[in-house]
Amino acid sequence: MKKVFGGLMLAGLLITGCSAQEDTKNNKASESSETIKIQEQEKEVKASSTELTPPEGLKLKADTEGIVPIAIEIPALNISTEIEKVGRLENGQMGVPKGMDTVGWFSDGAKPGSPGNAVMAGHVDSKSGPAVFYKLEELKNGDEVIVKDQDGKALTFEVTGKEKYNRETAPVEKIFDYAYGSKLNLITCTGTFNVEEGTHEERLVVYTELKADE
């Protein structure tokens, strides 16, 4: 059985396509002579292939990896803070950050910079005072939101709109949906605080999109 050597034999076939006779002992030696032959061939090809200039500025990979964000800055609101990962609570709600001054990123969803809607939430207030997204509503179209990963790679998003929704009828599916472009949606509470339910009656969503290459 030569199962194990399948890959090696493949290499052996190279030059003529019909000389895969070497046993594995000779393989290393033959590989290096093959390498030399290949280099010769390459020189040959290059020499024969005219002076055509290869096109420049080719983009060979889409920048769609996205980043794992650890920090967020919103210059217009003087916000610069850390990001916590949050998930989905038992009751189906998006989780919230533990801190009043930090922002929670829904890490089971899209990464900022990858296709889809990345979602972050921050508190509007604590029991006694304002919290990180207290002034989120003041953001205007064109304002920038910058997120960074632990290597300092930064992505800049631009506000494209904002919307208030009743907490029970907000289009949750849309807010967390896939998208071809890269979006980042910021959520906080707004409206009257319903003491009985322990939550605000409305949610504010600020929509942003990744800015084209800076």
Binding site: M94, A121, K127, S128, T192, G198
Partner: peptide, 23 residues
């Protein structure tokens, strides 16, 4: 199973907001 949230987050405790109590 990776599920998306079905509800919005609870991002406020009411300290700076007009509340039903206030009303």
């Amino acid at each position: 199973a990776g599920q998306k949230p079905s509800d919005m987050p609870k991002t406020g405790m009411g300290g700076m907001s007009q509340s039903t109590n206030d009303a």
